[in-house]
Amino acid sequence: MTQRTRNWLLLAPAGTWFLVMLIVPLTVVFIFSFGERAPSGGVVLALTFEQYANLPARWAAFKNTMTLAPIGTLSALIIAYPLAYFLAVKANPRWKTILLVLVIVPFWTSILIRSYAWIFLLGGRGIPALLEWVGIEGLRLINTPFAVLVGIIYGYLPLMVFPIFVSLDKLDKRLLEASSDLGAKPWKTFLQVTLPLSIPGIATGCMLVFILLMGEYLIPALLGGGKVFFVGNALVDLFLQSRNWAYGSAVAVTLVVIMLITVTIYMRLISRLGASREDVSIM
């Protein structure tokens, strides 16, 4: 058996699996998005843009996703950055690994249970009851955009910390010393040396979190109480409740297209940012 045949045989199962379980289903979604709803609940194949023309009916879901996903990503970044900085630069090297693992572990445990924990904490007998005790009354936390935001930050913070930590950890500490030896104040060193050099980590973290948030369903479903809903919630409704596959497919295709466009523009911006920085450093 030649090496070539062997490689083909090794690739065959994974390749077939990807073809049957990824490419074929995604193609079906794409084709269905141009179809019409059948009276029985299925799809009549057609070539119509009717479903796409109908998208404004779900405008609220897109609007919520496109506002809360960036806000959630930014909030996670603001909270994550100081922690990543602490872990990479300030923390005792002996404790570094264990502290980092402690940040990442929650991300790999069930997001369902972790969001449930916040139903518990934000619900009537959790934090509002504590606040009542100190005199703040009638505060409603659960089923608000705030609750969804807390859930988002809680869910995705670890994913943001990790890449920023990696980029800060790789940073040559002598650069920081050089900067301060040359008389730069600490905050100036941070703004001119540390922050620019950690941009790749920030970029990766923001992209990972943003992508996952675009398709979020659980957090708004559990903590938004039907008032704050994302595209994901609209999709569940369209496929599992109202069974409108053609329209649902159009919503799904639109979501993926918006995601691809955002990510492409974002990557362009980041690489341009990186390129301009290189010019500066050459000068």
Binding site: M21, L22, V24, P25, L26, L212, G215, G232, V236, S249
Partner: peptide, 18 residues
């Protein structure tokens, strides 16, 4: 593609595809 596509879209696609 498998990693980037949101889980919810994979779920939907698998459902209606299969």
């Amino acid at each position: 593609v498998a990693v980037m596509i949101p889980g919810i879209v994979i779920g939907i696609a698998t459902l209606i595809g299969l």
